[in-house]
C-alpha cells in the first residue's frame, strides 16, 4: 500500500516541479524567477527522498542535503545581487 502512496506522491511532486518550472520560464520579474528556483530545488529534495524510499536505499540523503544547502545559498546570493547589484561587498 505504501508503494502506491509513494508513487502518487512522486506524481504530485513531479507536477509541482513542472508548475514551478513554468513560473521560472514565464516569471515577469526577476524575483519571481528566484522564488521559482527556490521552490524547484525544495521539490527536487522531496523527489530525491521519495526516490530513495521507492528504491529502498538511503544513499540519496547526501544528495538531498547538498541540494538543500546549495538551494538556500543560491537564493540568498541572487537576492543580494538584486538588492545591491553586487555580490562581494
Amino acid at each position: 500500500m505504501i508503494e502506491i502512496a509513494i508513487l502518487i506522491s512522486m506524481y504530485a511532486i513531479g507536477v509541482a516541479m513542472l508548475l514551478s518550472l513554468y513560473r521560472l520560464v514565464r516569471g515577469p520579474e526577476v524575483v519571481d524567477r528566484i522564488l521559482a528556483l527556490d521552490t524547484f530545488s525544495i521539490n527536487a529534495i522531496a523527489l530525491l527522498i521519495l526516490d530513495g524510499m521507492y528504491l529502498g536505499s538511503e544513499i540519496y540523503f547526501e544528495a538531498a542535503l547538498v541540494i538543500a544547502m546549495l538551494g538556500f545559498v543560491t537564493t540568498v546570493v541572487l537576492c543580494k545581487y538584486v538588492l545591491r547589484r553586487d555580490i562581494v561587498e
Binding site: 500500500m1 505504501i2 502512496a5 509513494i6 504530485a12 511532486i13 509541482a16 516541479m17 513560473r23 520579474e29
Partner: peptide, 26 residues
C-alpha cells in the same frame, strides 16, 4: 498512517507550487 501522511504532505507541496502559478502578484 505513513501512507496518509505522505499523500497529504505531497498534496500540500503541490498546492504550494500551484499558488506560485495561480496567484497574480509577487
Amino acid at each position: 498512517i505513513l501512507s496518509l501522511l505522505l499523500v497529504v504532505s505531497a498534496f500540500f507541496t503541490l498546492v504550494g507550487s500551484l499558488g506560485l502559478v495561480k496567484l497574480s502578484d509577487f
